[in-house]
Simulated assay, not measured.
Amino acid sequence: MCILVFQWQSHPLYPFLLFLNRDEHHNRATEALRLWEDGETVGGRDLVGGGTWLGCTKHGRLAFLTNFRETSSFPDAKSRGDLPLRFLQSRKSPAEFAEEIQEEIALYNGFNLVVADIFSNSMLYITNRPSQGDKLVTQVSPGIHVLSNANLDSPWPKCVRLREGFQQLLSENGTSEFPVKKMVEELMTNTVKDETPELPHVYPPEMEYQLSSIFVDIKTPTGRYGTRSISAISIKSHGEVCFYERHLEDGDSWKEHTQHFVIQNHTI
């Protein structure tokens, strides 16, 4: 489970800005944000499935993923974290990649995937759980979008809170540089929960209640579960990228990691 908010092609200084909370079991082996061995890709890694939930490359490719909240799953399904990884390591356009995976998306449990190429100003939303009448693949429009564990821009209360908080911070900072760490603290550590009538009613009410905050921290019979990392990616109009992560290590120790680079041979 995760939640994220991003703005795309709607700010004069930042063509792209994203904040993302990754929720996971605390005992699941995870690698913090770093530059990968290929010398090009930046992101964290899930050491169980081998994939990632959020990554960016020095050539301006972006991918991020959330799981779809549902009551049943296939134990032998393919790892969803492999999808962002495949896009980041390919040279296909977002449209070409979406076409490539069309015939295999039924092999995955429910997912939401966003892939983008900064060079071509192209961003697509791909899901194998579309709302009735919606397409599997849609172009992401310029503006602010929120994604959790339902379809893109679904009005879950915590998504509405996150959107409103994000809009407020954008308004306060105007066209000046954003204080990313301050914005992370104000937006992504919110623990406000929802009343029962407002919950999505996919899981039992008590579990839904515990998951209804932007920042999640739950004790479960199998161990602690909740927000393992908070990430922020900002891309400026001249291609400068700041990828920041606050990552939970050793149970209760939060560590900060930052990667800076400029998208190669690019003017946005």
Score class of each variant (00 low, 15 high):
Met1Ile: 01
Cys2Ala: 15
Phe6Tyr: 04
Phe6His: 05
Pro12Gln: 12
Leu13Arg: 09
Pro15Phe: 01
Asn21Leu: 14
Asn21Ile: 05
Arg22Leu: 06
Asp23Ser: 15
Glu24Ala: 12
Glu24Ile: 14
His25Gly: 14
Asn27Glu: 10
Arg28Glu: 07
Thr30Pro: 00
Trp36Ala: 00
Glu37His: 14
Glu37Pro: 02
Glu37Arg: 13
Asp38Gln: 05
Gly39Pro: 02
Gly43Val: 13
Gly44Thr: 01
Asp46Ala: 06
Gly49Ile: 01
Gly50Leu: 03
Gly51Ile: 00
Thr52Trp: 07
Trp53Cys: 13
Gly55Gln: 13
Cys56Pro: 00
Cys56Met: 12
Thr57Ile: 09
Gly60Val: 01
Arg61Thr: 02
Ala63Met: 09
Ala63His: 04
Leu65Trp: 05
Thr66Gln: 01
Arg69Val: 09
Thr71Ala: 04
Ser73Ile: 01
Ala77Leu: 03
Arg80Asn: 14
Leu83Arg: 14
Leu85Val: 11
Gln89Cys: 10
Lys92Tyr: 02
Ala95Trp: 08
Glu100Met: 13
Ile101Phe: 09
Gln102Tyr: 15
Glu103Asn: 05
Tyr108His: 10
Asn112Arg: 06
Phe119Trp: 01
Ser120Tyr: 00
Leu124Asp: 07
Leu124Ser: 02
Thr127Leu: 05
Thr127Asp: 03
Pro130Tyr: 08
Ser131Asn: 09
Gln139Met: 15
Val140Thr: 00
Val140His: 00
Gly143Trp: 12
Gly143Thr: 02
Val146Ala: 14
Ser154Trp: 11
Ser154Phe: 11
Lys158Tyr: 10
Val160Asn: 01
Arg161Tyr: 13
Glu164Ala: 10
Gly165Lys: 15
Gly165Val: 03
Phe166Thr: 14
Ser171Phe: 12
Ser171Ile: 07
Ser171Cys: 08
Glu177Asp: 09
Val180Met: 03
Val180Ile: 14
Lys182Ala: 07
Glu185Leu: 08
Lys193Leu: 13
Asp194Lys: 07
Pro197Thr: 00
Tyr203Ala: 04
Pro204Phe: 04
Met207Ile: 11
Gln210Arg: 14
Ile214Val: 11
Asp217Ser: 08
Asp217Ile: 15
Lys219Val: 15
Thr220Arg: 15
Pro221Ala: 09
Pro221Trp: 05
Pro221Tyr: 06
Ser229His: 12
Ala232Gln: 00
Ala232His: 10
Ile233Cys: 03
Ser237Thr: 08
Ser237Arg: 11
Cys242Ser: 09
Tyr244Ser: 08
Trp254Pro: 05
His257Gly: 00
Phe261Met: 11
Phe261Val: 07
Gln264Ile: 02
Gln264Lys: 02
His266Tyr: 09
His266Thr: 04
His266Ala: 03
His266Ile: 08
